[in-house]
């Protein structure tokens, strides 16, 4: 069979057009299977016709295929076909929103972090201030203790033990008298807490004749930690005594409430 003459007859063009009889169609099909060049010719004719007919198509107003799928009730999962332009728009939009969300979340996180850090800084500052205060107190305490130690070690200082009297025999106190500075340090650790409404009052005494001079009340006795009190004393004291008096103190000592008493050694 002359393949070239067959092709040139124009039958293949009619085959693609659908203008042949059923018998002729079967004939072309069989020859196509036997001769690749006939198949190739058919493919090229078909391709050219598709391009020509496509050129007469008008742009679609609707998405025809998605409507076809809808009418055929194709898998509910993918009923709508989104056009390319729409996809592009969505892609941009979603990406934009996603980016905005990420940035927003990042911003919130940063703000939160900042707040936490600020709060931490504030806490640290408060702690620092508290620690500074403690150091200051410790320094003050140290200075006071040092001072006390100096007083105790000073040769010039007169030490006067005050012994418990009468009902208060178990109590005791001690007075350190610095004559140069006219001050005494009263160590009252051996006294019980003052009852409510009462205060301890410190007296300077001269013995002949017995004359008490008030050195004042110890109003902060119960709250003081080390129970050492510095008191001014410019008197020529021969003895010191401590009585419990009503709040505000008394003009003269209440002898029934005399807790401790001690005489100054006449050594100097």
């Amino acid at each position: 069979m002359d393949i070239k003459a067959y092709i040139d007859s124009g039958i293949l063009e009619l085959y693609v057009a659908g203008a042949l009889s059923e018998k002729e169609n079967k004939e072309v099909y069989d020859l196509m299977l036997q001769h690749p060049e006939i198949l190739q010719e058919v493919l090229e004719i078909e391709s050219a016709v598709i391009k020509l007919t496509s050129a007469a198509a008008q742009p679609s107003k609707t998405n025809i295929f998605s409507q076809i799928k809808e009418k055929l009730k194709f898998g509910n999962k993918e009923v709508k076909v989104v056009s390319i332009e729409r996809t592009k728009y969505n892609w941009m939009t979603y990406t934009g929103w996603a980016a905005a969300l990420v940035v927003g979340a990042g911003l919130l996180w940063t703000i939160n972090q900042n707040n936490q850090l600020e709060s931490a800084v504030t806490t640290a500052e408060i702690e620092k201030a508290y620690l500074e205060q403690q150091i200051e107190e410790a320094k003050t305490n140290l200075a006071a203790t040092q001072n006390l130690l100096n007083v105790l070690r000073d040769r010039e200082i007169i030490s006067v033990p005050l012994a418990g009297q009468g009902n208060f025999a178990t109590t005791y106190a001690k007075v350190y008298w610095d004559k140069k500075t006219n001050s005494i340090y009263l160590d009252a650790q051996g006294l019980p807490e003052a009852p409510e409404g009462k205060v301890y009052q410190v007296w300077s005494l001269t013995l002949d004749p017995l004359t008490p001079t008030s050195l004042g009340t110890i109003d902060d006795f119960n709250t003081d930690d080390n129970k050492i009190f510095a008191i001014t004393n410019a008197n020529e004291s021969q003895a010191f005594g401590i009585t419990l008096e009503p709040e505000g103190g008394s003009e003269s000592p209440t002898m029934e409430q005399l807790y401790t008493l001690g005489v100054v050694a006449s050594a100097p």
Partner: peptide, 12 residues
Amino acid sequence: MYSASMQGVIYN
């Protein structure tokens, strides 16, 4: 593959 071609034919 074929929708544009069919659209052309139908529109014509």
